[in-house]
Computed example of a mutant assay.
Amino acid sequence: MQKQNHSHFKPERSWCLVISLVGLLGGALFISLFLRTSNNLIGCNNNKLAQEKFLVDNPQQLLLDAILHYATSRVIPQQNINEIRISFDVLKNRTPCNFLVFGLGHDSQMWASFNSRGNTLFLEEDPKWVETILKDAPFVHAETVKYRTMLSEADELVEHFHKEPDCSAKKSFIRGNHGCKLALDMLSDEVYNKEWDLIMIDAPRGYFAEAPGRMAAIYSAAVMARNRKGKGVTHVFLHDVERKVEKIYAELFLCRKYLVKGVGRLWHFEIPAASNVGNSFC
């Protein structure tokens, strides 16, 4: 995800990307309207906030807002159009679905609009950044996450994984898993109680030693995918795979054999449930 202090205007690619995004969003709007006509709606829990109910009843509004946002913004998404299209093509076939995104940024409105009839949740490490993004996109659903890792610990955490029984693929749990440092054990019930059809890992920060790094996000995404009870696979998208830690942890937990596509700095994995593959991650 693209944070404010790292985003900047790039005129040489801005208009091309904006036009492409508007085209993708227009396609998503058509799909949304088709699904509405077909009465393929998601039920709305009576306890949901009024804003969430509004989006369920008017999903095309989110799409129109996203089109307006990207058509008039000087800030462009971090992923390029070829990387975005990989996730878009999956969402196009799976929506409405449960879509979990690690990271919040200027592209969040785009991801939410692609799944306008589904449930899209963003997990972000910086509470102030959440406030900044939600000022312009109040209908985006985001939660803050406290990570207990640092990028400088990446090698040590690999050793910890091999030695700590609670990290084992045989146990494979994250809720309340205080023994495994790679398990995101303090997320909301919403994260734990849903089966996520798609998981995008584009955060937390992982480019300086004191940053949380994406080790725990990658491990926890793999555990969520392995614990799937529903039909089919879990689609996991990992960005910034040119970096050492992302690549090592992807091959350790997401597995090269489940890698189905890679474009630019993005890898797409289709991970089956543990019941179909046994007691090891890879």
Rank of each mutant, 00 (worst) to 15 (best):
K229Y: 12
K229A: 12
K229L: 14
G230S: 15
G230F: 05
G230K: 15
K231D: 10
K231R: 12
K231W: 07
G232K: 15
G232R: 15
G232H: 10
G232M: 10
V233G: 10
V233L: 15
T234A: 08
H235G: 09
H235D: 13
H235F: 08
V236H: 06
V236D: 09
V236K: 07
F237W: 05
F237L: 06
F237P: 01
L238S: 02
L238Q: 03
L238N: 03
L238C: 01
H239D: 01
H239C: 00
H239R: 00
D240F: 00
D240E: 00
V241P: 03
V241Y: 01
E242Q: 11
E242Y: 12
R243M: 06
K244G: 03
K244M: 04
K244N: 07
K244I: 02
V245N: 04
V245Q: 02
V245R: 00
E246S: 00
E246N: 00
E246L: 00
K247G: 04
I248N: 02
I248W: 02
Y249G: 00
Y249W: 08
Y249P: 02
A250L: 05
A250F: 01
A250Y: 02
E251L: 11
E251N: 14
E251H: 13
L252T: 03
L252H: 04
F253D: 04
F253I: 07
F253G: 04
L254N: 04
L254H: 07
L254Y: 06
L254I: 08
L254A: 10
C255W: 14
C255I: 10
R256G: 11
K257V: 07
K257M: 11
K257C: 08
V260W: 08
V260K: 15
V260T: 14
V260E: 14
K261T: 12
K261A: 11
G262W: 12
G262C: 15
G262M: 15
V263S: 09
G264R: 05
R265Y: 08
R265N: 15
R265G: 09
R265A: 13
L266T: 14
L266I: 12
L266N: 05
W267M: 04
W267C: 03
W267S: 04
W267Y: 14
W267G: 02
W267R: 12
H268S: 07
H268C: 06
H268E: 11
F269E: 01
E270F: 08
